[in-house]
Design a protein around this nucleic acid. Structure first.
Lengths: 233, 233
DNA sequence: AAGTGGTCTAGACCACAGG
DNA sequence: CTGTGGTCTAGACCACTTG
């Protein structure tokens, strides 16, 4: 009989975590079902359910109807990244944000993106090239394509005051998207814009967002040397 | 009167999402409280709560007691990264995994990590250097320090069969950790090990995990050229 | 077919923070 | 102090999936 402090779902989660970490319940092993745990803890099944659901979300246990709940064999490290608007990211470190619009024009969708923007093959898209600064030092270089069908008002927006980044968040909310992270070598342009030695390794992110099945925007962001994306698990 | 299909919490979430995306509820605006929504949807408050809690977790709304629920002004992009064991990551793409232990010795903690491993300054740590392969091509290069106080059995483990990566997941579960991602340039060693041209930009990850306040391991992973870390939002 | 998790309800009390 | 979200309960029915 283990005396947990309370019958709160967090208290129960804590005790379940203890049993998993201390190997009372081995990896792969099936744990008692909700009803039994509820009885043991003297609480409603709903409360146990809440605790187990939380553990399942973080990947520590695997739940299946009829098959019960098992301790995960290879608990994946699941990390939640918060990708803020660049301005907020910069200002959060106490620095001053500024951005400069380097290029803005309408052009056919580059072939590279035909796969990503299937619906707008024949339409021009808005192309933006932006440099973001923190305390007047280059912070990130951005290339962006905006689908004007998804955000018609973008056609008449200058993007010199409010960055496209921020404007889109407020004016063309997305329902889902893909993000990927990778490394690129600074070519001549990047090297000049980001004040990086030629060939320097730079952290980069590519992101496509959609509203339903309509693509909104494709962004390629390349960060100045030394950038790190951090998170806790 | 909007007719949503069901009274399921996902159905309610869908309708709430629609109202947010369609600007029925403007960013920053306060939305009706749970009791009113429950009445409107003809369901229990608990069900509305579940839907709103989910939206709050994804950052779309901000909830405060007494102050009510508001549509987030700058909804951050919150992405959940799943960082699997390398073997599983490789095998998930249909390739064959293999790893090779390049170095294994005991040494004092390098000064660089004194900040991270405060408790073990005077103790030797286990140092491992590993190369991971996918279909016999280099996949990632790993340097790892293991705190022997946190995982004493590691002292007598060879790590030639099971990788340290995998062994630790099963033998030294962590409670929390820090991860960061960045780009590095291939130096001579990396270039040789990872079959990359010298100076190639490589994607890298640094991770420290803890069990309570005891550090377990510090890993530095550098991936072969072309690696991308992907996720959906 | 039956066992297990998934969800919903109606009601209650609590905790926190704004006025 | 009061209104709002946060949580808990006891019970019920449903949905999935495995044996």
């Amino acid at each position: 009989m283990t005396l947990t402090e309370t019958n709160s779902w967090t208290g129960i989660r804590k005790e379940l975590l203890r049993r998993i970490h201390s190997r009372v319940w081995q990896p792969g092993e099936q744990i008692p079902h909700e009803a039994d745990l509820a009885e043991e803890f003297g609480c409603a099944r709903t409360t146990v359910n809440r605790a187990l659901r939380d553990l399942a979300e973080s990947g520590l246990v695997v739940r299946k109807r009829r098959a019960g709940t098992r301790v995960a064999l290879n608990p994946p490290q699941r990390a939640t990244l918060t990708i803020p608007i660049i301005r907020e990211e910069v200002e959060a470190t106490g620095r001053t944000y500024r951005h400069s619009l380097l290029e803005r024009d309408f052009r056919p969708l580059p072939p590279m993106l035909h796969g990503a923007f299937p619906a707008t093959l024949s339409e021009d898209v808005l192309y933006l090239k932006t440099l973001h600064f923190a305390d007047n030092r280059p912070y990130a270089y951005e290339e962006r394509y905006i689908n004007l069908n998804a955000a018609p008002e973008a056609r008449d927006t200058a993007f010199d005051e409010v960055s496209a980044n921020e404007w889109l968040v407020h004016n063309a909310p997305y329902s889902h998207g893909d993000i990927s992270f990778f490394a690129v070598s600074a070519d001549k342009t990047l090297s000049r814009k980001l004040d990086a030695g030629s060939g320097t390794a730079l952290f980069a992110m590519e992101r496509i967002t959609w509203a339903g099945n309509m693509p909104i925007t494709h962004v390629h962001l390349i960060f100045a040397p030394g950038y790190r994306m951090r998170t806790e698990i």
